[in-house]
Amino acid sequence: MLAESDIAAIAITLKLAAISTVILLLLGTPLAWWMARTRWRFKVLLEAVVALPLVLPPTVLGFYLLVALGPHGPVGGLMEWLGGQPLAFTFAGLVVGSVIYSMPFVVQPLQSAFSTIGQRPMEVAATLRASPLDRFLTVALPLARSGFLTAAVLGFAHTVGEFGVVLMIGGNIPGETQVLSIAIYDHVEALEYGHAHWLSGALLLLSFLMLVAVYTFNRRFSVVKI
């Protein structure tokens, strides 16, 4: 069965995924909206940067984040200078890492949903007296709802499943930064296969259920374009 530290790991994982998903949606929506509509010449560069975590080994990403967030890195240094703590080996650091790591999984479905809508419904709304913000809220968001569902679930699930980045920047502090995937790794290293089974099974079931939910709600839409 589950040890106390396992339950803490599950709680931390869910909390991390939930917070990261909310932040990702808040940041990803304007970014995806802009990328879907801009004709900026260097848009491809930004798209490549957003997509980097898809191809980069998580340890590489984690390494750079560790350097940046640590006391001698630019972000960590800034935090210290502001009277705070460096973010490395803290829960806040994990959130920063997760947001960057899962960004493509949120931005790409949103961008594709916004592109699919196209310019026309927005123009129609404009001729029906809707201001830019009004038409974004009342036309673009509802028409992109399946994209949002996909983005939220993928962002959440991907954060739940992350390992390398967390290990690099979060360390492995039980009750603080130890997440599910790392707890499983620890159990396996300690040859505690029973514990590893329980946690792995729970993760498998959770991931499966989330994807079933996406496909059920999104049957009319071609989902998961990654």
Binding site: R120, E123, T127, R129, A130
Partner: peptide, 14 residues
């Protein structure tokens, strides 16, 4: 456009 008192019908009903 949203401050002009006009009605617009597009080629496709949209």
């Amino acid at each position: 456009p949203h401050k002009r008192q006009l009605g617009y019908v597009f080629q496709e009903a949209s």
